[in-house]
């Protein structure tokens, strides 16, 4: 399977272990992720928070880049929920609102063809790869690993824009983790917000929000979080207080662990909360 890929800015920085585990897992599953040429930042939370059209035109330029590379897949995949959300918001405005389309086309200087499907990697791994294929790749079922799946906001909301399953109770990550054999715990805080970029300006508030999430995760019996979002991972990994913080995994890291893929030590070294004692205690290091 060949797909066009929009990696987003954090792949070379704060989410480098996400990027490396994505490479390992996609290679093992025969998925070729081809980066679109000369992409720009999607604008993240900042662009739309300061100017609404800036928040639509920056991702629109990436849609234009994908359109221009006609030899590549029309499925444009991103692993970052923030980028997914920004690209989807732009695509939604371009598709549904004639006036907005004309305006964004003028600002970003392109003609929207509507041929690019913005997709998230987690949805592709859940829907486009057969469960049997995934199960067949598992060498070390993670049956002793008790997890809560944390989806955060950007992947699922607003529902009309993202178009992904039930925004109150998404199941994609739960399904993938269960296929990897993990002991996935049910909890009610899957899509609560982590505090996002308030971590930089209001660290105490984010510490409180993250602390509540960790309490609820423990209440559900989990030993770790699993997420698909770089900002959720960073906030949970950096802002948990107390003596025994819960490790915070990317879902692709745990898929790579269950599939016994190489290079995992390098991923764990990038974490702030060291997951090694949990993993080696369970025999998954």
């Amino acid at each position: 399977m060949k797909l066009s890929y929009y990696p987003g800015c954090t792949v070379h920085s704060t989410a480098i272990e996400y990027s490396r585990s994505i490479d390992a897992v996609s290679q093992a599953l025969g998925i070729e992720l081809r980066e679109i040429e000369d992409w720009n930042c999607c604008g993240a939370a900042a662009a739309h928070s300061i100017h609404r059209d800036l928040g639509l035109a920056l991702p629109a330029r990436n849609i234009a880049q994908a359109q221009n590379q006609a030899e590549m897949s029309r499925d444009l995949v991103t692993s970052c929920p923030g980028c997914f959300n920004a690209l989807k918001r732009a695509d939604y405005a371009l598709k549904k609102d004639e006036d907005a389309r004309r305006e964004i086309e003028e600002i970003a200087d392109f003609h929207y063809s509507g041929e690019i499907n913005i997709r998230s990697l987690i949805e592709i791994l859940t829907n486009d790869i057969a469960a049997e294929t995934l199960r067949g790749k598992v060498k070390k079922p993670l049956e002793k690993l008790k997890l809560v799946c944390y989806y955060g906001c950007a992947l699922v909301r607003p529902h009309a824009v993202t178009g992904l399953e039930n925004p109150e109770n998404p199941m994609m990550m739960d399904t993938l983790m269960e296929l990897m054999g993990a002991d996935v715990r049910d909890w009610s805080y899957k899509t609560d917000c982590c505090g996002a970029d308030l971590a930089l300006t209001h660290a105490d508030l984010v510490t409180t929000i993250v602390g509540r999430l960790a309490d609820h995760a423990r209440e559900a019996g989990a030993d770790a979080f699993v997420t698909s979002c770089g900002l959720c991972q960073a906030n949970l990994d950096m802002r948990q207080s107390g003596p025994d913080p819960l490790p915070v995994f990317y879902f692709t890291e745990l898929m790579g662990t269950a599939m016994d893929l190489p290079g995992r030590d390098g991923w764990w070294r990038k974490h702030i909360i060291n997951p090694m004692s949990l993993l080696s205690g369970l025999g998954y290091a």
Partner: peptide, 16 residues
Amino acid sequence: LLHRLFAENIRAFGKV
């Protein structure tokens, strides 16, 4: 300020 500087960073480099 953070939103503005983030946006200015995109203006300067294209990526953050």
